[in-house]
């Protein structure tokens, strides 16, 4: 076989195998490469090639009717950035807020499932994933029926005579600029609600996987060494859960930044996120270079964020 020419390659990353006497070496040498092949091919065809094409597109000039030419026109990047920086910034802020919200909701939930749910553990985990059984679009639309002016929330507060709570909540949101008038829907608040809801499982699952491995006896040991529950959380539970927190925040923040469905369905023209802009540039304005440039800017921003973030978290003496 032609693949056997790879025999001189550096030691292949193969899973540790139990010693079974003298097995033919040659076979063990190329099997990992064979196994890697489909995945590599997939990535080359569907990731690397499109990325290069996108990069090239972002540097071209021309229009749809007369065709494009690669002119290394970096001005597109400058133009795109100066025109759409508010949408970029907004995307980052919404995604960051939603990430913090999923963490605040997800941590206690993951802790409860991991350590307090007993025999209901698997059932609760299924419930966490259950929303995935319906489409993303429908789940997001559901928020319209919840937050609408005559939606479930309004009906509920009217029914229980707790309207005053709702209006109090609204004025609080107004103070923070999360709604602009009396309407909950079509506001930054609604978009962040949608993002938080849709990405919550991506926070809960890695956190659960991490917290489940956290030895409860360490928490007992902290208590035994004079740490109150709050101090035990701060000095033992939180530092040990950081790998899960990092994984969860990345899985939430990255897709939330590029998301546009929540903004389309639950937001207004005042809440446009960068995903919407890219979508419009590609499919309606047909300005491919700007769309491609914006895609790359978003990509670079996220990569820069991830690198700094992971570095930061990495210094926290992770195990």
């Amino acid at each position: 076989m032609a693949v056997s020419t790879l025999a001189g390659a550096p030691p292949a990353p193969q899973p540790p195998q139990p010693e079974e006497g003298k097995r033919p070496r040659r076979r063990g040498a190329y099997v990992p490469y064979l196994l890697l092949l489909p995945g590599m091919l997939w990535l080359v065809v569907f990731f690397l090639v499109p990325m290069l094409s996108l990069a090239s597109q972002s540097l071209q000039t021309g229009d749809v009717d007369n065709g494009y030419a690669l002119t290394f026109n970096f001005a597109t990047y400058a133009d795109a950035l100066s025109t759409y920086w508010p949408q970029l910034l907004r995307s980052l802020i919404y995604a960051a807020t939603a990430t913090v919200a999923t963490l605040a909701l997800g941590f206690p939930l993951a802790w409860f499932i991991a350590h307090r749910s007993g025999r209901y553990k698997n059932f609760l985990l299924v419930l966490v994933i259950a929303p995935f059984f319906t489409s993303f679009l429908i789940r997001t639309l559901a928020w319209q029926t919840i937050l609408g002016d005559t939606g479930l929330l309004a009906q509920f507060t009217a029914f229980t005579h707790t309207d005053f709570l709702l209006s109090g909540f609204k004025s609080l949101l107004r103070t923070f600029g999360l709604i602009s008038n009396d309407q909950l829907l079509f506001s930054p608040f609604a978009v962040i609600c949608g993002l938080t809801y849709n990405f919550l499982p991506f926070m809960v699952l890695p956190l659960y996987a991490n917290l489940e491995r956290l030895d409860q006896r360490l928490v007992e040991a902290a208590g035994d060494l004079y740490a109150s529950p709050v101090q035990a959380f701060r000095r033992v539970i939180w530092p040990l859960s950081l790998p899960g927190v990092v994984a969860g925040t990345l899985l939430t923040f990255i897709p939330a930044t590029g998301d546009y469905i929540n903004s389309v369905l639950l937001g207004s023209t005042q809440t446009t996120m960068i995903g919407q802009v890219i979508d419009a540039q590609f499919l309606r304005v047909l300005d491919y270079p700007t769309a491609a440039a914006l895609s790359f800017i978003l990509l670079l921003l996220i990569v820069a964020f991830v690198v700094t973030y992971v570095r930061r978290a990495g210094t926290e003496e992770l195990v």
Binding site: R217, A222, G223, D224, E317
Partner: peptide, 21 residues
């Protein structure tokens, strides 16, 4: 009295040393 308020300390069976410290 709560555990953290007692002047009693334990050497745990699995030692329960804090792995991050």
């Amino acid at each position: 009295t709560k555990a953290y308020q007692r002047n009693v300390n334990t050497v745990f069976q699995n030692y329960a040393l804090f792995p991050h410290l």
